[in-house]
Design a binder for these strands. Sequence first.
DNA 1: CTGAAAGCGCTTACAG
DNA 2: CTGAAAGCGCTTACAG
Lengths: 335, 335
Amino acid sequence: MPEQEAKIYTIADIAKELGVSKTTVSRALSGKGRIGAETAQRVQEFVREHNYSPNVVAKGLAQSKTYNLGIALPFDCVDLSFFKECMIGICETACRYSYDCIVSIQWEGGLSQIERLVMDRKVDGMIVTRSVIDSQVVRFLKERQMPFVVIGPSDDWEVVSVDNPNQEASMELTSLLLMKGLRKLALIGGNNMHYVTESRKQGFLDAHMEQGVLADRSVIYTDIDDYRKIARVVGQGVAAQVDCFVCMDELTCMSVLGCLHEMGIRVPADVKLVSMYDSHRMEFNTPPVTSLRFDTYGLGKNACMEMLKMLGENVEDEQLALSYQLILRESTKTT
Amino acid sequence: MPEQEAKIYTIADIAKELGVSKTTVSRALSGKGRIGAETAQRVQEFVREHNYSPNVVAKGLAQSKTYNLGIALPFDCVDLSFFKECMIGICETACRYSYDCIVSIQWEGGLSQIERLVMDRKVDGMIVTRSVIDSQVVRFLKERQMPFVVIGPSDDWEVVSVDNPNQEASMELTSLLLMKGLRKLALIGGNNMHYVTESRKQGFLDAHMEQGVLADRSVIYTDIDDYRKIARVVGQGVAAQVDCFVCMDELTCMSVLGCLHEMGIRVPADVKLVSMYDSHRMEFNTPPVTSLRFDTYGLGKNACMEMLKMLGENVEDEQLALSYQLILRESTKTT
DNA sequence: CTGAAAGCGCTTACAG
DNA sequence: CTGAAAGCGCTTACAG
């Protein structure tokens, strides 16, 4: 049986079959330029019947566009679910505007893949999913005059960025702990070079300020990124008799919980525990851990809309306000 | 200060500057066709100095290629780390051959995004990262005559697929348990429509066969995909006094462990626990859980190499043999 | 070894 | 309202 062998039509084929010019077909398809209603009809019908779809690459070449967005994804993303949700938000939105997303793995420091992507002119813009202080990537993108938006905070006026309300949320979470009467809070967090670490710490400090409690700087630990270091600072925290461990992310939190278990320290009976970033893990842990849930999908979506706007796409300005929830679970039960 | 305003050269510019034809420039760059050594030199030098890089899209159009690979990623990937590592393996390899990867989120059942990607002719081939029984995606890809490879098992002769040795590894893991004298093993697993569920179960049964132990089918549970169901079957397993819970994936395993904790049942003292898929979580749990570690990065790499081969790329046949490790941890200590 | 020309499949001034 | 033509930036027979 000779397969249906779906002939791939070109605009020229259609023009010939219909006895009109390529120009006309093109116009009927794009809707740009004046064109007779009847002619347009005929073209559209033909197209539908033979389910033609234009060669986007050719279209792109003619317009000096690619209809592709690049997503720079850090290779060492601990926070898997964050990047996944973000990516889905971006892709979905891109798709709605007929763009596709090319992923580019971003190795620490270097920018090999991203460089190629940009130099090859395979994307119209870039979305950078981890904002790093003094980023090479950002510098490169600027230099190459490639439009981009970064996800996460930025103190650079020229950079378009979208972000979760990390500082605000961290502050609310911390305030709550203080209001519960917990006084000595240990903060355990990630890489100092990540902006987000800074925001969370700031929120933590803001809350102390607001509640009129002096933050104990001796139990604020940052750049704690492996199990050994975590074990060490948990030990220190316990020795210092902190009331609560405040973890900046879920992975750290899992590890802290592990350490506590091992030391035979009970949560929440002996010490409280919270995470500044929620995940399924936080929910199904023993005990379930109080944490902050952000709308990461929405974040990706917003980033993408900003990008599309920069590219001159006519996006309806449905930019959603990013919110978060403070989810109280057993790990902070005080009774 | 007028930015360096990096002029974007085209092949025509170069030809003019050097007083040769575009053909010559093209040849000097691609290395195809005979060309004078000296001329080639001159071109290459010019190119280096002005760091020109060709417009890949235009090149693609001329060759009816895109130099893009599509990766179909399931939106509901529980096994985040699997897809991430796989993706990195793919992207890395693609990059080495000057391809880029467009991600396409694959919603349950539907194939909207993938369809667009293919119809728009934005990719040369597709890599499908979850093999599902009787897959719509596969059917569509075949119909459209789009080259593709699937990651995971496939019983379809026409389909190129690469896979982890799931069955073999599951068998080894199970055998080990049986050899340790554990007799009643509960198997808890995921979606029946996923091929991988089938492979793991088969390996589990093979081991029983090999060891001459009758598998107790009453404690083989599949399609257990949410916390409620897990809680239920764990309860049943405990009541049936199983010796060990064998979980097909890490997420399930985490939940099973949670349930056991809640019921006050100790691992490994009262019951053993293993996972057929490793992750950091398994390592840093209390107790750490015995599990199977696969080379997912290598899997992605292989998939990509297969794909590139199909596309006529001259890949060195460094196809790596996929292996796995059986990592024994505290959760199966028998003393 | 080198080049003029046609072509990849589209878009878009420009001129009817 | 419609079309011939040039152009997007490359490649590749074909003919020197």
